[in-house]
Nucleic acid binder design. Structure first.
Lengths: 250, 250
DNA sequence: TTGTAAAACTAGTTTAAACAAGTTATACTA
DNA sequence: TAGTATAACTTGTTTAAACTAGTTTTACAA
């Protein structure tokens, strides 16, 4: 769930995050001033500010010019999140973070046709792996998904790898880490496949997540559409409004 | 939709974004090198890098050490977004950005009870405005929402203000800009109110967005639950994976 | 011609310093 | 005592420079 910092600013970020989570700095408290923290961490003001900026982007703190940095992390809210959904979508979406059991329903090599090209933005004729997979934890199915992986990038994919983790394979074997993911979430009516595999209860509509993933060097190598079980689905989002900005067309 | 930059880095960010959108730098192209751009914009390397970092966070470019900065903005994809949903959720969520017609269904002053306190994280007894509003564009209803505004922050709220924009009132009259919003998205079964106001077609489930908003100085002043019309709902998300990080529990 | 080492690129990290622009505390004045 | 100007905080912006760590090009040697 967490990262191994190999920079000064990342380790300061991680440490401050811990201190917040362990209630040393509580909800609505002010962090020590920059000058003070610079002494604590024996670093430059820039490096410290970089750590704080990241904490802000992740919704832990909020900086106010002239006043200080206020903690807005609320364990109360965070706990509710876990209680409500078992697994947050931000975790769901990051497939490395949760150990899903994966069942491969279909494994094929195809070329992108006109219809698929339009929705995936892959050029027509691109050789891709076409995979259908079921993601589950224990006996509960959570996601049915269709993946299209560019064969030029994801070389020599096998059913075994698809059953384990394609991302792990990319990272560790092909040394081609994923760098950016663009995600679109919509609500769609459940189809026959969804009804077959997911426990829909009385729901007739489900969240559909469309994924476009890029490698390190900017090539989009994956297009994926995931159908999620609706009752356990949670998406968490955190947004910093630019305080100096105003909307032109309010 | 856009912001008025009053910083150097924001104006560089805005300019580069425009140049990307106007196809001067196309999908998969490399931006000019930092050294080059520093000359173009007559700024320091730090300031330029700050602009590029923001472009990266917004999904326009991706930096690769040793190589350069690659454009991953695809007008194709972006256009599809608009075509599919009319209005993206990121716009929807930012209520200042789209001109919804707002109908106030209920306007009341209450104190937070135990039940509301648990879901909102407002302390029991907090005086709040309790408002129900319908958001529509033309004759189409998009959102039914319940707002709870802290009366200590949002002073002297009236039905007229609620019918216009509470955020505008906060910003321009009370000079209390909103700084951070935490958002949780779940799928719920439509209730009687949803059926009454929203055009659900055959859907029996809808996206529900729960909002926690903070002022400049870290006080959570708003708790809002919005029920959205499912067929027009789109959420767009952009995620940069830390390339130097690895998951501990893969 | 091919392979390899070096040089010339690219972006990433860290420090330092000066100044701007807010907020709070202090001290002085009426 | 009350009000106000000032000094002493706070974070925000910008520039500069040195170094690190990747990638690509160049040039030389086999």
């Amino acid at each position: 769930m967490d990262i191994i910092p190999n920079n000064k600013y990342d380790s300061i970020y991680a440490d401050l995050k811990n201190r917040i989570k362990q209630d040393e700095f509580q909800y609505q408290d002010k962090l020590p001033s920059e000058t003070n923290l610079v002494l604590q961490y024996n670093c430059s003001r820039n490096t410290l500010r970089r750590a704080i900026k990241k904490l802000g982007a992740d919704g832990y703190v909020q900086s106010v010019r002239g006043k200080g940095v206020i903690v807005i992390y609320n364990s109360h809210l965070e706990n509710d999140l876990i209680k409500n959904g078992n697994h947050s979508f931000s975790q769901m979406a990051d497939r490395n973070k949760i150990k899903f059991k994966t069942t491969v329903l279909l494994f094929d090599e195809i070329e992108v046709d006109k219809k698929l090209s339009l929705e995936s933005t892959f050029p027509i004729g691109t050789p891709v792996y076409y995979i259908k997979r079921l993601r589950s934890i224990g006996s509960d199915n959570y996601i049915v998904e269709e993946n299209y992986f560019m064969r030029k990038v994801v070389k020599d994919l096998t059913i075994n790898i698809a059953q384990d983790s394609v991302y792990k394979y990319l990272n560790e074997v092909l040394n081609e880490p994923i760098a950016t993911t663009k995600r679109i979430l919509t609500i769609g009516l459940a189809d026959e496949q969804d009804k077959k595999y997911l426990d829909l209860k009385t729901y007739n509509a489900i969240p559909i997540v469309t994924n476009y993933s890029f490698t390190n060097d900017g090539t989009m190598f994956e297009y994926t559409v995931s159908h999620h079980r609706p009752d356990k689905f949670i998406f968490y989002d955190q947004n910093e409004t630019n305080p100096v900005s105003f909307m032109l067309n309010n």
